[in-house]
Simulated assay, not measured.
Amino acid sequence: MTRTFASPFRVMPLARLAKGGRWRTEAMRSYGAPVLLWFTRGQGRITLNGKTAGYTAHNCVFIPAGTMHGFEMNNAVAGMIVVFPPGLEQELSLPEEPVHLRLTDAEQHIELNRLIDAIQTELEHGAAASERALISHAGLLSVWLERQIGEDEVETPREDATTRLAAAFAALVEQDFHSAKTVRDYAKALGVTPTHLSRVCNKACGRPASAILADRVHYEARRLLTETHLPVKDIATALGFASPAYFTRAFAQHTGRSPSQFRRRG
């Protein structure tokens, strides 16, 4: 008899990640675990650490835990997501920085599909020693990633002042989005004016600093509303809003629905 092995590893279609609305993929957010996105069909734009680039079919993107990101995903996009267990980054020798691979060789596609299928099969039919087997398969996937880094297919953002400032802003937002800090506060911490920070963010990812900050805050609000039973007033407090009423107004302006309406409709 087969059984599903209870494991912090997860493999699922990208379509499942998008279930519940575009905010699940497009809004700026991060995960507490490393993830690998494997786009097998379609195209769009993906933002990693404040830098936006295009992706197409046969692109593979590795995103370390705690990296703020978001990507466009319409009905034409298909692929898989692999979620690694948090805390195993060093053991598995996973990359410390985001990696965007543009795989042009059919052998690369076959190899990556095989590695992902092996993890998925172990999750679905795991028996004794499945956890060891999963770590071994994940290790092989990590080796595959390491071998691709440095090849021509790797997307390496140019490290200019704009890229560095946008990435620094994204990192600070990820660290402090639950506080009441404004764009002015972040700009002061980075030693620039709010106007310059917004200009840089617009250049790097096509949206001003205020939109990036609001996106991150309201993604977390929507996540808490759909995935927890926390009262709205507690969510408002957790995200640094001065009052539940202010949170409700801001949330409605951002999403078109009140927090209670959003929670009821999922």
Rank of each mutant, 00 (worst) to 15 (best):
G240E: 05
A187R: 08
E227V: 07
A128T: 01
G70D: 04
N74E: 12
G50N: 12
T237L: 14
F84V: 11
L239D: 01
G20C: 02
N74S: 15
Q175L: 03
G240Y: 05
Q120L: 11
T228A: 06
G139C: 07
V200P: 06
L213H: 04
R22F: 00
E174T: 05
D234Q: 13
N49E: 14
A33Y: 03
Q148K: 11
R29F: 07
E227K: 13
N202L: 14
S142R: 07
V77N: 03
R45L: 09
T121R: 12
R132S: 11
A187W: 05
H137S: 09
R265Q: 15
L239G: 01
M73R: 14
T56C: 13
K19W: 12
L190M: 10
A118L: 09
I135Y: 08
M28W: 07
R263F: 05
E159K: 06
R265L: 14
K51G: 08
R29T: 06
A138Q: 05
G266L: 06
L140S: 14
L48M: 12
I46M: 05
A161M: 14
A250W: 02
S7A: 03
H58Y: 14
E174S: 10
L197M: 11
A65G: 12
T182G: 01
Q90A: 12
H254M: 02
G256S: 01
E97W: 08
L48C: 02
L103M: 15
L123S: 03
L239Y: 01
A214N: 12
Y31D: 03
R264E: 14
E124R: 15
A214L: 13
P194S: 08
E107H: 10
A245K: 06
K181E: 13
K233S: 14
A180K: 09
T121A: 15
A204E: 05
F247A: 13
A204M: 04
L225F: 09
N59D: 15
D105L: 10
R216S: 01
P259G: 06
S258W: 04
P98D: 00
V77Q: 05
V82C: 03
Q108G: 13
D117M: 02
V232H: 09
L94S: 01
L165R: 12
S198D: 10
A171K: 08
T226K: 10
E122T: 13
L224P: 04
I119S: 00
R102V: 00
A133Q: 11
R29W: 05
L190P: 12
R102K: 04
L48W: 02
L230Y: 11
G54K: 02
Q175C: 03
Y246F: 05
L94T: 01
V99A: 09
G32E: 07
G256Y: 03
S136M: 00
G32A: 07
